[in-house]
Design a protein around this nucleic acid. Structure first.
Lengths: 233, 233
DNA sequence: ACCATTAGTGTATTTTTTACACTTTTTGTG
DNA sequence: CACAAAAAGTGTAAAAAATACACTAATGGT
């Protein structure tokens, strides 16, 4: 035991970790991806996927690594959320957590996940279990951030497939903002931004009028924001 | 030297520090409070006031301590900005910095500062010296945050005296947003929010029509936001 | 054939934002 | 003491944006 401890410093240091709040959308409601803890403390409790920051990686890189290694997702939208530093947030010793929030397309995720990842499960945002550590607090902040951000940055698209219908997009906004939006006004607004392109493809095998698919036009969005024009829904 | 190093861990840990971006306003333009470094690295260069996080304090508390000890300001608006974790951001060893931004009433500050604080100076935002470490990057982000935040949260008031005229408030907004605002429209808008109260006091000894003093009505603001109504300028 | 279901569309009203100019008050100066 | 200088304070009309609202079109299932 003593032998293991080999990194020595002049002053005490907190451990530094990263925790990830991972949002997904299944067409109806927002979900959160949680992992079951394998060890004490909080063994068998649900928690945000997280881990300690390595000496050769930034916290951003650490978050990406956790997303990939622990839950099998990569190339997704990740953004730093907040740093939590309450001295007693981990019962073992002091751990400061730089938290991140990620937006994942649930369908893509289901293809990648599985292998040597942790036991992970999607939970309804409205029906979360009690979480380990201060993770409920972190989730709360992430939800606020997502709500705030979604109306002035096109991050919502990260939660959908590359092609999507306007109704799907509207459902997503309604789920995030917890409100209902008038269909005509929504379409008017979102199309007027000029950041969507209609594809030459409709839904198939639906027992109703098929909807056109759209995709997010990243180039148009970049031009828009570079000109200093704010996106707002 | 060896004797000094007495804190030992199983895995290596970055040092954890806090840096503060402190904004002030003098009626005309926005300023930033910088301290001169007393030691290497970057000895005698200008830098953000900062320091290492103690084991018994949160990063918030650390930021407050730095504001108080190093530059002599207290009871000011402080908010976490972002955590910077590039592995090479400090040439000595790995230091992760949780940065904060603070808004200070320059007049109040001038009363408190001085004693056993560091050499500190206000700099024009438009005319900053080259800064130590990655502090320029931190400042850039703080400016963006301030600009973004000022139009939907009444943080601007923190930079003014408790009583202020509408013209002073407008100048502040113009300085932060780097734009000019129509006087009548500004007054209409800001008064319609119902978060200002007119005092029964005017300016004195000014060679023009004296302006009424106003103060920020925290109670009204709280009620407003608790009802879920967004403040926006 | 028809039923159920959701896609897709336009207009009128209200609210918000913008643009714009003159009078009032006070001090300092000649 | 008249007048100049300086910024305070004030209203309205026009334009733009947000909102409220209801029917027809297309498709697969029964």
């Amino acid at each position: 035991m003593k032998d293991k401890k080999k990194y020595t410093y002049e002053y005490p240091r907190p451990a530094l970790a990263t925790d990830c709040v991972i949002f997904g959308f299944d067409g109806g409601s927002l979900k959160l991806l949680l992992t079951e803890r394998e060890k004490e403390p909080f063994k068998n409790k649900w928690a945000l996927p997280g881990g300690f920051v390595h000496m050769d990686e930034t916290t951003d890189e650490c978050a990406e690594r956790i997303l990939k290694e622990k839950v099998g997702v990569k190339n997704v939208f990740v953004e730093q959320l907040y740093t939590f530093s309450e001295t007693d947030r981990d019962p073992r010793e002091r751990v400061v957590s730089v938290s991140y929030f990620a937006l994942v397309n649930k369908h893509q995720y289901e293809l990648v996940a599985g292998r040597d990842t942790l036991k992970a499960e999607w939970f309804e945002l409205a029906d979360l279990p009690k979480l380990a550590f201060d993770h409920s607090k972190i989730v709360k902040m992430a939800i606020l951030r997502l709500k705030g951000k979604v109306s002035y940055q096109p991050i919502g698209f990260e939660l959908l497939n590359e092609k999507f219908t306007l109704s799907q997009l509207q459902s997503l906004y309604e789920a995030i903002l917890e409100t209902s939006i008038d269909k005509r006004n929504f379409r008017k607004k979102i199309l007027s931004l000029g950041i969507l392109k209609v594809l030459e493809e409709k839904e198939k095998n639906v027992a109703r009028k098929a909807a056109w698919y759209y995709s997010f036009d990243k180039k148009a969005y970049k031009e828009l924001t570079q000109k200093g024009i704010y996106f707002e829904i």
